[in-house]
Protein backbone atom coordinates (compact mmCIF):
# COMPACT_ATOMS: atom_id res chain seq x y z
CA UNK A 1 0.00 0.00 0.00
CA UNK A 2 1.32 3.37 -0.96
CA UNK A 3 2.43 5.46 2.04
CA UNK A 4 -0.08 8.26 1.45
CA UNK A 5 -2.98 5.83 1.13
CA UNK A 6 -1.84 3.92 4.20
CA UNK A 7 -1.75 7.12 6.22
CA UNK A 8 -5.16 8.10 4.91
CA UNK A 9 -6.67 4.75 5.90
CA UNK A 10 -5.10 4.81 9.34
CA UNK A 11 -6.45 8.30 9.90
CA UNK A 12 -9.94 7.12 8.92
CA UNK A 13 -9.74 4.10 11.23
CA UNK A 14 -8.58 6.17 14.19
CA UNK A 15 -11.29 8.74 13.56
CA UNK A 16 -14.00 6.10 13.36
CA UNK A 17 -12.78 4.14 16.38
CA UNK A 18 -13.55 6.48 19.27
CA UNK A 19 -11.17 4.43 21.42
CA UNK A 20 -7.44 3.74 21.39
CA UNK A 21 -6.53 1.30 18.61
CA UNK A 22 -3.42 -0.85 19.06
CA UNK A 23 -1.05 -1.20 16.09
CA UNK A 24 -2.08 -4.87 15.85
CA UNK A 25 -5.70 -3.86 15.31
CA UNK A 26 -4.70 -1.40 12.58
CA UNK A 27 -2.59 -4.07 10.88
CA UNK A 28 -5.46 -6.55 10.99
CA UNK A 29 -7.96 -4.01 9.66
CA UNK A 30 -5.65 -3.19 6.76
CA UNK A 31 -4.94 -6.89 6.10
CA UNK A 32 -1.27 -6.29 6.72
CA UNK A 33 1.27 -8.42 8.54
CA UNK A 34 5.00 -8.78 8.86
CA UNK A 35 7.69 -6.53 10.28
CA UNK A 36 7.98 -4.31 7.17
CA UNK A 37 4.27 -3.51 7.12
CA UNK A 38 4.30 -2.95 10.85
CA UNK A 39 7.15 -0.47 10.46
CA UNK A 40 5.19 1.27 7.70
CA UNK A 41 2.11 1.58 9.92
CA UNK A 42 4.19 2.90 12.79
CA UNK A 43 5.85 5.42 10.48
CA UNK A 44 2.43 6.54 9.25
CA UNK A 45 1.28 6.95 12.87
CA UNK A 46 4.36 8.99 13.74
CA UNK A 47 3.75 11.17 10.70
CA UNK A 48 0.11 11.68 11.70
CA UNK A 49 1.21 12.47 15.24
CA UNK A 50 3.39 15.24 13.84
CA UNK A 51 0.37 16.62 12.03
CA UNK A 52 -1.86 16.37 15.12
CA UNK A 53 0.60 16.98 17.95
CA UNK A 54 -0.54 16.90 21.59
CA UNK A 55 -1.44 20.41 22.70
CA UNK A 56 -0.65 21.74 19.24
CA UNK A 57 -2.53 24.12 16.98
CA UNK A 58 -5.10 21.63 15.81
CA UNK A 59 -8.39 21.13 17.66
CA UNK A 60 -7.73 17.41 17.86
CA UNK A 61 -4.57 15.59 18.80
CA UNK A 62 -3.26 12.13 18.15
CA UNK A 63 -1.96 10.47 21.31
CA UNK A 64 -0.67 7.13 22.49
CA UNK A 65 -3.17 5.95 25.05
CA UNK A 66 -3.79 2.68 26.89
CA UNK A 67 -1.62 0.63 24.58
CA UNK A 68 -2.96 2.15 21.37
CA UNK A 69 -3.40 5.34 19.36
CA UNK A 70 -6.39 7.66 19.59
CA UNK A 71 -7.68 10.97 18.34
CA UNK A 72 -9.10 13.20 21.02
CA UNK A 73 -9.85 16.87 21.48
CA UNK A 74 -7.02 19.20 22.37
CA UNK A 75 -7.10 19.98 26.11
CA UNK A 76 -6.60 23.64 25.18
CA UNK A 77 -10.17 23.55 23.83
CA UNK A 78 -11.56 22.20 27.09
CA UNK A 79 -13.81 25.19 27.78
CA UNK A 80 -15.47 25.17 24.38
CA UNK A 81 -15.86 21.40 24.31
CA UNK A 82 -17.28 21.23 27.82
CA UNK A 83 -19.86 23.90 26.93
CA UNK A 84 -21.52 21.48 24.56
CA UNK A 85 -20.39 18.04 25.72
CA UNK A 86 -19.93 16.30 29.00
CA UNK A 87 -16.25 15.62 29.48
CA UNK A 88 -15.27 12.16 30.69
CA UNK A 89 -15.37 11.73 34.44
CA UNK A 90 -12.27 13.12 35.98
CA UNK A 91 -10.39 11.69 38.89
CA UNK A 92 -11.25 14.62 41.16
CA UNK A 93 -14.48 12.78 41.95
CA UNK A 94 -12.50 9.99 43.58
CA UNK A 95 -11.86 10.26 47.31
CA UNK A 96 -8.29 10.60 48.54
CA UNK A 97 -8.55 7.09 49.99
CA UNK A 98 -9.57 5.68 46.59
CA UNK A 99 -6.73 7.55 44.87
CA UNK A 100 -4.26 6.09 47.36
CA UNK A 101 -5.53 2.57 46.72
CA UNK A 102 -5.43 3.20 42.98
CA UNK A 103 -1.83 4.33 43.09
CA UNK A 104 -0.86 1.33 45.21
CA UNK A 105 -2.55 -1.05 42.74
CA UNK A 106 -0.98 0.78 39.79
CA UNK A 107 2.55 0.48 41.14
CA UNK A 108 2.43 -2.85 42.98
CA UNK A 109 0.09 -4.87 40.76
CA UNK A 110 -0.85 -7.61 40.98
CA UNK A 111 -1.64 -6.90 44.61
CA UNK A 112 -4.06 -8.19 47.27
CA UNK A 113 -6.31 -6.21 49.61
CA UNK A 114 -4.31 -7.20 52.70
CA UNK A 115 -1.14 -5.90 51.02
CA UNK A 116 -2.89 -2.61 50.33
CA UNK A 117 -4.16 -2.41 53.91
CA UNK A 118 -0.60 -3.04 55.09
CA UNK A 119 0.73 -0.10 53.09
CA UNK A 120 -2.08 2.28 54.07
CA UNK A 121 -2.33 1.08 57.67
CA UNK A 122 -6.09 0.94 57.32
CA UNK A 123 -8.71 -1.41 55.95
CA UNK A 124 -9.32 -0.43 52.34
CA UNK A 125 -12.28 -2.55 51.28
CA UNK A 126 -14.63 0.36 50.69
CA UNK A 127 -12.39 2.43 48.38
CA UNK A 128 -11.39 -0.77 46.57
CA UNK A 129 -15.05 -1.50 45.86
CA UNK A 130 -15.42 2.00 44.43
CA UNK A 131 -12.44 1.44 42.13
CA UNK A 132 -13.80 -1.90 40.93
CA UNK A 133 -17.24 -0.35 40.33
CA UNK A 134 -15.67 2.43 38.27
CA UNK A 135 -13.71 -0.16 36.30
CA UNK A 136 -10.38 1.37 37.15
CA UNK A 137 -9.13 -1.85 38.72
CA UNK A 138 -10.17 -5.43 38.30
CA UNK A 139 -9.45 -8.91 39.56
CA UNK A 140 -6.52 -10.38 37.69
CA UNK A 141 -6.08 -13.67 39.50
CA UNK A 142 -5.59 -15.39 42.82
CA UNK A 143 -2.55 -15.20 45.02
CA UNK A 144 -0.65 -18.49 45.15
CA UNK A 145 0.79 -17.79 48.58
CA UNK A 146 -1.66 -15.56 50.42
CA UNK A 147 -4.39 -18.17 50.88
CA UNK A 148 -5.81 -17.55 47.42
CA UNK A 149 -6.57 -13.88 48.04
CA UNK A 150 -7.84 -11.97 45.02
CA UNK A 151 -5.14 -10.13 43.09
CA UNK A 152 -5.99 -6.74 41.65
CA UNK A 153 -4.58 -4.88 38.66
CA UNK A 154 -5.44 -1.74 36.74
CA UNK A 155 -7.62 -1.75 33.60
CA UNK A 156 -7.06 -0.18 30.16
CA UNK A 157 -9.78 2.26 31.21
CA UNK A 158 -7.49 3.40 34.01
CA UNK A 159 -4.74 4.13 31.49
CA UNK A 160 -7.16 5.96 29.20
CA UNK A 161 -8.59 8.13 31.99
CA UNK A 162 -5.18 9.06 33.34
CA UNK A 163 -3.68 9.64 29.91
CA UNK A 164 -1.14 6.82 30.09
CA UNK A 165 0.19 5.13 26.98
CA UNK A 166 0.86 2.13 29.20
CA UNK A 167 1.90 1.26 32.74
CA UNK A 168 5.51 2.03 31.84
CA UNK A 169 4.30 5.62 31.50
CA UNK A 170 3.76 5.91 35.25
CA UNK A 171 6.34 8.18 36.84
CA UNK A 172 8.87 6.18 38.90
CA UNK A 173 7.60 5.55 42.44
CA UNK A 174 10.93 6.44 43.99
CA UNK A 175 10.46 9.98 42.68
CA UNK A 176 7.70 10.36 45.26
CA UNK A 177 9.84 9.32 48.23
CA UNK A 178 10.31 11.81 51.04
CA UNK A 179 13.55 13.76 50.80
CA UNK A 180 16.33 12.93 53.25
CA UNK A 181 15.64 16.18 55.06
CA UNK A 182 11.98 15.32 55.49
CA UNK A 183 12.89 11.84 56.66
CA UNK A 184 15.30 13.23 59.23
CA UNK A 185 12.67 15.71 60.32
CA UNK A 186 10.22 12.87 60.78
CA UNK A 187 12.81 10.85 62.72
CA UNK A 188 13.61 13.83 64.88
CA UNK A 189 10.00 14.62 65.63
CA UNK A 190 9.37 11.02 66.56
CA UNK A 191 12.41 11.19 68.80
CA UNK A 192 14.36 8.66 66.80
CA UNK A 193 17.22 10.87 65.88
CA UNK A 194 19.41 11.60 68.83
CA UNK A 195 19.22 15.31 69.42
CA UNK A 196 22.54 16.80 70.49
CA UNK A 197 22.52 17.14 74.28
Amino acid sequence: MEAGVLRQNIEALLFAAGEPLPVETLLAALSLSGPLERAAVEAALESLALEFPAGGERGIELVRLAGGWAFRTNPLCRTAVSALFELPEDSSRLSAAAMECLSIVAYLQPVTRPQIAEVRGVNSDSPMRTLVDRELITEVGRSQSGGGAVLYGTTPRFEAIFGLAGLEDLPPLEGFALGEEQKDELRRRLGLLATPD
Binding site: F15, P75, L87, S91, I161, F162
Partner: peptide, 8 residues
Protein backbone atom coordinates in the same frame (compact mmCIF):
# COMPACT_ATOMS: atom_id res chain seq x y z
CA UNK B 1 -4.91 17.20 32.90
CA UNK B 2 -6.30 14.37 30.87
CA UNK B 3 -9.91 15.09 31.82
CA UNK B 4 -9.91 18.12 29.49
CA UNK B 5 -9.85 15.86 26.46
CA UNK B 6 -12.81 14.28 24.82
CA UNK B 7 -12.72 11.25 22.62
CA UNK B 8 -15.37 10.84 19.98
Amino acid sequence: TNAGCLMR
